[in-house]
Write a protein that binds this DNA or RNA. Structure first.
Lengths: 364, 364
DNA sequence: CTGAAAGCGCTTACAG
DNA sequence: CTGAAAGCGCTTACAG
């Protein structure tokens, strides 16, 4: 269904510039461009009467400064670049929103790029952002950091990453999350509930923070002497991946009583697939997520997960990005605590497990 | 927990520009800036040997063109502005991702702004984007369009809106959704299942497309002679709003057997609150969403909803934005069909309703 | 095929 | 307090 309508005529040549320039304002106010510029920028040294004239002209012409020209001169652009791997994950949305909030308060805009886990996209995104001479670059991706990041550092553009290993690059700001502690507590929580066989559902794309989750899982289960563990590592992320993980576990005959997921988004898919198989959570099997996105509170059952203080993360990243101008430079490495949030999806071990109904089904 | 580390010294004055400029490349390749520029832009008229020299210099210096300068000259900026009201709604995320996909294919970048339903933010966002001389502006917001939009049109910057009423503004591209049909089919579906009392959960922030949903609900229920209907109109959006709506309905003693929500995100909250009240969906009460976001497939129960062809929407919006350059100009008004997707959350009327357990609870 | 020059819209010392 | 001039990094007619 659609209606074809006339396309607005390109009246008067398409290459014609329609912008109101400072020169137009100056002419109208009968002052020089310099003076007009001063008024626009609110500099003191302009007499009341001229200021008023310029202000009036500004208003009448509805002048909007050409930010490109401005930042070409100043060498700075009140724009921050933000790059993430997966905008489907609500955690990154939250991060973006909080960064934007911070940025707006300080008069910055945000250029956003979503790499979709594609290293080529990441390279491109960084290149263009550097080309735009962003004032800073916030990166939260799973892909390894490309060469371009060094260019950024060389060009003295502040770069801050969420996650990433150690302090290999002094020039890069790093905000890291103590996910190890979070995952450890999660395993301990399940262990205390009597669970002795657990599976971890992760993905191959390794953001350092998610990688740590897997390591922490392995380490803690080993330490606690959990009898049976299994790693399901998928290529993708999201609810679909969670569903597939459960199918694979069942298919392989992996009988665990608890499934730990690398994030909430994946856990949602796990919950759904368990329900399809008539397994009750947490009566038959326990499930955990990670991130504490808003949805984990509204899923059925609600998710036991690890809360990540997004606001704190965004604030630190922003502070690092704007450290240059700050009288109190922040540390360029920052580790953030995580905390377990216990909801409905985990419960005491009661002899159930992933294959509970599968056996029933076969018996029939 | 954090470690304080030395802040990288500001070696050699902070105002020093570190960029590699075309001039540096030219000097190294022993050619003029003009020639270097030609090579960068892949113009034909450069001899093989000079081209090679320049290419080598480009590589060695790792030259990245200053996009600000470039677009200052050309008057164009391979950047598209995208503005949405609520990035929390997965539908808009999808829209952004699809627009970005399109844009990248054609070498555009995206400047994203999230207004959070704040008209001030919207104005600001448009202003800055115009300031950056974006090549086009895609707007999908609930707020009324501000004055600034006309400036954009006057400045010959293509603007396309998702939603919005009629063809009031010939200069604006409009992609609209036939939500009326979608909501009508939803009501008819429930009516056919025997439901005679329904509530609609919406919000006050009226994006034209969501406003139409409410109208369609009212119109269709009236036409079908649905006995009892109710409108719960909240200020917010999202799962929290859905939860509140159910609470309010119960509190007011509104006994309906079906709840229709303005979108999936809200429906998730409704499902959750119903479960808290021990109401089974769809046995006791039916629920519908709108949008068909990925989550509606994974919720428990999965949601009966209306599918919105995001890809088609994004493609049309992009086409309209880049219509100038197109040999086959698209129509500037486009209406998109929507389709009902029936899942688990709707079922035959069996004498249940919202107050089913509430009465039981009181009886006890 | 190549270079010198003008100019995109703005800011900012530098004079007055 | 105000203006003329230089310059940010690039592209693009215009000569040669």
């Amino acid at each position: 269904v659609y209606e074809k309508l006339d396309f607005p005529a390109e009246s008067g040549g398409s290459d014609q510039r329609m912008d109101v320039r400072l020169e137009d304002v100056a002419r109208r106010a009968k002052v020089s461009v310099s003076t007009a510029s001063r008024v626009v920028n609110g500099l003191e040294s302009v007499s009341g009467s001229t200021r008023r004239r310029v202000l009036a002209a500004l208003e009448e012409l509805n002048y909007m400064p050409n930010l490109q020209a401005r930042s070409l001169v100043s060498g700075q652009s009140k724009t921050l670049g933000v790059i993430v791997s997966n905008l489907e994950n609500p955690f990154f949305i939250d991060l973006f929103r909080l960064l934007e909030e911070q940025a707006h308060e300080q008069g910055f805009e945000i250029l956003l790029a979503n790499t979709n886990y594609d290293p080529k996209h990441l390279e491109r995104a960084i290149r263009t952002m550097l080309g735009r001479r962003v004032a800073g670059l916030a990166i939260a991706v799973s892909e390894p950091l490309p060469q371009e990041v060094h260019e950024a550092v060389r060009a003295k553009i502040p770069v801050v990453c969420f996650g990433g290993k150690d302090n290999d690059q002094m020039e890069l700001g790093r905000v890291r999350l103590d996910t190890h502690a979070g995952m450890r507590k999660l395993v301990e929580h399940l262990h205390a509930l009597g669970h002795r066989s657990m599976a971890y559902v992760g993905h191959q794309l390794s953001l350092a923070t998610t990688e740590e989750r897997r390591e922490a899982f392995e380490e803690t289960t080993r330490r606690l002497g959990i009898e049976y563990t299994y790693l399901a590592v998928l290529e993708r992320d999201g609810p679909g991946a969670g569903r597939d993980a459960v199918r694979e576990l069942v298919h392989r005959g992996i009988d665990v009583s608890a499934i730990l997921c690398l994030n909430d988004n994946t856990a949602i898919g796990v919950l759904r697939e368990l329900r399809n198989r008539n397994l009750r959570v947490p009566e038959d099997i326990s499930v955990t997520g990670f991130d504490d996105v808003i949805l984990s509170e509204f899923s059925c059952p609600s998710l036991t997960t690890v809360h990540i203080p997004r606001r704190e993360i965004a604030r630190m990243m922003f502070r690092m990005l704007t450290a240059r101008d700050s009288p109190t430079p922040p540390p360029m490495q920052y580790l953030i605590d995580s905390e377990v949030v216990i909801r409905e999806s985990t419960g005491p071990y009661r002899g159930g497990g992933l294959l509970l109904r599968a056996e029933e089904a076969e018996a029939q």
